Lab assay of single mutants.
Amino acid sequence: KFNKELSVAGREIVTLPNLNDPQKKAFIFSLWDDPSQSANLLAEAKKLNDAQAPK
């Protein structure tokens, strides 16, 4: 279960257009550290992506 959630969340995070590479890497490392938090980490990444969207 975690492997699928981890890969789905990881793929989504790397495609978020408004995150820079260090931010993406930080989220990916957090996913590896605790795969059970993949849904929460993906939600946080999406929030940050939205907040950094060009206005």
Rank of each mutant, 00 (worst) to 15 (best):
K1I: 14
K1G: 12
F2Y: 11
F2A: 08
N3M: 13
N3E: 14
K4H: 12
K4P: 14
L6K: 03
S7G: 08
A9R: 04
A9S: 06
A9G: 03
R11P: 02
E12H: 08
E12I: 14
E12C: 12
I13L: 04
I13T: 01
V14S: 12
V14W: 12
T15K: 14
T15E: 13
L16W: 02
L16T: 01
P17F: 00
P17V: 06
P17L: 05
P17Q: 07
N18Q: 03
N18M: 03
N18W: 14
L19G: 00
L19D: 01
L19Q: 00
L19M: 01
N20H: 07
N20E: 06
Q23D: 03
K24S: 00
K25C: 15
K25H: 10
K25D: 13
A26K: 13
A26T: 07
A26I: 09
F27S: 00
I28N: 03
I28A: 01
F29D: 15
S30D: 13
L31R: 00
L31K: 00
L31Y: 02
L31V: 04
L31C: 09
W32G: 04
W32Y: 12
W32M: 11
D33C: 15
D33W: 09
D34P: 01
D34G: 00
P35Q: 03
P35C: 05
S36V: 05
S36E: 08
S36M: 07
S36Q: 06
Q37T: 06
Q37E: 10
S38T: 13
S38V: 15
A39C: 09
A39R: 05
N40F: 10
N40Y: 10
N40A: 13
N40K: 11
N40H: 12
N40E: 11
L41P: 02
L41D: 01
A43M: 08
E44H: 04
E44Y: 04
A45D: 02
A45W: 00
K47V: 07
K47A: 13
N49G: 01
N49Q: 00
D50W: 05
D50Y: 05
A51W: 07
Q52P: 01
Q52L: 08
Q52T: 03
A53Y: 05
A53E: 08
P54G: 09
P54F: 05
K55N: 11
K55W: 03
K55C: 12
